[in-house]
Amino acid sequence: MSPQLSVLKNGFVVSAAIGMLANIATAIPVSGLEKRDVYTPPVTYPHAGTVWYKGQRHNVTWDTANHPVNITNKLGRIWLRKGDITTPVILGENFDILLGRIEVTVPWVIPDTDYSLVLFGDSGNFSPQFSIQE
């Protein structure tokens, strides 16, 4: 058997073994674990009509009043969204989603009126569209 064929065969065997282990792990019952909830707190600031200027600092806020007891992911992240596209610009991350606010610095982006924020914890939650200017 050629060395290339041997490597290919061994790679296939390893991949198959990993797949089998993954299937076994998902079949194991998870009794005794707490039920977790997806939490999507509404963003309260910025709101429609808000104008931010590049380099300023602002508190992004969201309503935590009705949060469930067991949240699947308590670590938050805030991304900038332009129109219908979530950009790779992260304004804040690894904060407790129950804080209800996090201070961010307005990034240097093309001035426009169709920006929004995406608040991630368990799920993405969009702010209303607002403006970033120079």
Rank of each mutant, 00 (worst) to 15 (best):
S2H: 08
P68I: 05
N23S: 13
D122V: 06
A17L: 15
Y45R: 05
F120D: 09
N70E: 10
I90N: 03
I102M: 07
E134D: 14
G121H: 03
S123Y: 14
Y115E: 05
I132V: 09
V69P: 00
H67R: 13
E93K: 14
V69M: 08
P107N: 03
P3Y: 08
P68S: 05
V89R: 01
H58S: 01
T61N: 05
V89D: 06
N66K: 11
S2D: 12
K35S: 12
R101K: 15
N59I: 01
P29C: 08
A65T: 15
R81N: 11
G11Q: 06
A48H: 08
A65V: 06
W62F: 04
I97R: 01
V106H: 05
T87F: 07
G49A: 04
P88K: 07
A22M: 12
Y45V: 02
D96P: 02
S127A: 05
R77K: 15
I71K: 00
P111G: 06
V43Y: 03
P88N: 15
I90V: 15
A17S: 12
L98P: 03
Q133G: 03
I78Y: 02
V69E: 14
F95R: 01
N59L: 10
F95I: 00
R77I: 06
N94K: 13
I110Y: 12
T113H: 11
N73I: 07
I102P: 00
D37G: 02
G11R: 03
I71E: 04
V69C: 00
W79M: 09
V43S: 01
D63S: 05
L5C: 04
E93T: 13
L80Y: 00
P41R: 05
Q56E: 14
L75N: 12
V51H: 08
D37C: 10
G121D: 03
H67P: 00
R36Q: 15
V104A: 04
I78P: 00
G124S: 10
P128K: 14
W52V: 04
R57I: 04
N10F: 09
T105V: 14
Y45Q: 00
T72R: 11
P29F: 06
I18D: 06
V69T: 13
V106K: 01
M1A: 14
L80S: 01
S131N: 06
S6A: 13
I28D: 06
V106G: 01
G32E: 03
L80V: 01
N23L: 15
G11Y: 04
L8W: 07
R57T: 15
G76Q: 00
F120A: 02
I71P: 01
L98V: 13
L75V: 04
L33N: 10
R81D: 02
T61I: 04
T61C: 08
R101P: 00
A25R: 12
